[in-house]
Structures are given as structure tokens and as C-alpha cells.
């Protein structure tokens, strides 16, 4: 039996708050915590590399291509930065959706023209 003094003490308020938060956690939809990003579907296919591979490695791919194009002077037209927009026509609905989710902000579009 818990003494009546307990319910008026500091601990009681803490446990009520805890129970309330616990209930909210159980009831709330999981999307509140982890809505996965929904990048727009490509208008055509296939991707310049395996799409699964691109999801993880597109940043290295782009930076590798950039060294090759700018410093070595070998530009593969179909794999250029500009070519991405031929199949992924919006950076806001494609690139930015994922990047906002993982909080990276590449500055590429300050210089590279890509449709919004």
C-alpha cells in the first residue's frame, strides 16, 4: 500500500508524466519518428549505374566524374550532372527530399543548373 503522502510528492508528478509520455509513444503513428524520404520516381530508366548502388554511392560517383571531367578532360555526356535531370527532372522532389532527411546540404546547385 502506497502512503497518501506519496501522491502529493514530487515522485507522483514524475510518474504521471512518465505514464503519459509512454502512452503517447505507444499510440502515435511510427511515421512521426521515421517517415522515410520519398524521392520522386525516375521518368525513364535504367539509372547510369545500378539504382541500389546509386542510392548509397551517388555522391562518390558524382565526385569521381567531376575529377575525370574537369581535371582529365574526359566527359561522358550520358553520365554528366546535366544528364541526371533528364530522368530525375526535379531536384526538390528528388535530391532534396533525401538530403533534408539526412541533413546534408551539398552546394552543387549554386553553380550547376538543375531544374527545381
Amino acid at each position: 500500500m502506497i502512503s497518501p503522502a506519496f501522491w502529493s510528492g514530487r515522485w507522483s508528478r514524475a510518474s504521471v508524466l512518465f505514464l503519459f509520455l509512454f502512452a503517447a509513444w505507444i499510440v502515435a503513428p511510427s511515421s512521426l519518428w521515421a517517415a522515410p524520404p520519398q524521392p520522386e520516381k525516375a521518368v525513364r530508366g535504367p539509372c547510369v549505374r545500378d539504382a541500389e548502388w546509386m542510392r548509397r554511392n551517388h555522391m562518390d560517383f558524382l565526385k569521381h566524374k567531376r575529377e575525370e571531367t574537369v581535371r582529365e578532360g574526359v566527359a561522358v555526356k550520358s553520365e554528366s550532372f546535366l544528364a541526371c535531370s533528364g530522368c530525375h527532372p526535379s531536384r526538390e522532389r528528388f535530391c532534396d527530399r533525401c538530403h533534408a532527411y539526412v541533413a546534408v546540404a551539398p552546394n552543387c546547385f549554386e553553380c550547376h543548373q538543375y531544374p527545381k
Partner: peptide, 10 residues
């Protein structure tokens, strides 16, 4: 990744 052919400006 496999390399795909394409027009190259070199």
C-alpha cells in the same frame, strides 16, 4: 558498377 557506353567529349 558496369561502365556503359555513351558519347564522350574528351
Amino acid at each position: 558498377p558496369e561502365t556503359s557506353p555513351g558519347s564522350v567529349a574528351a
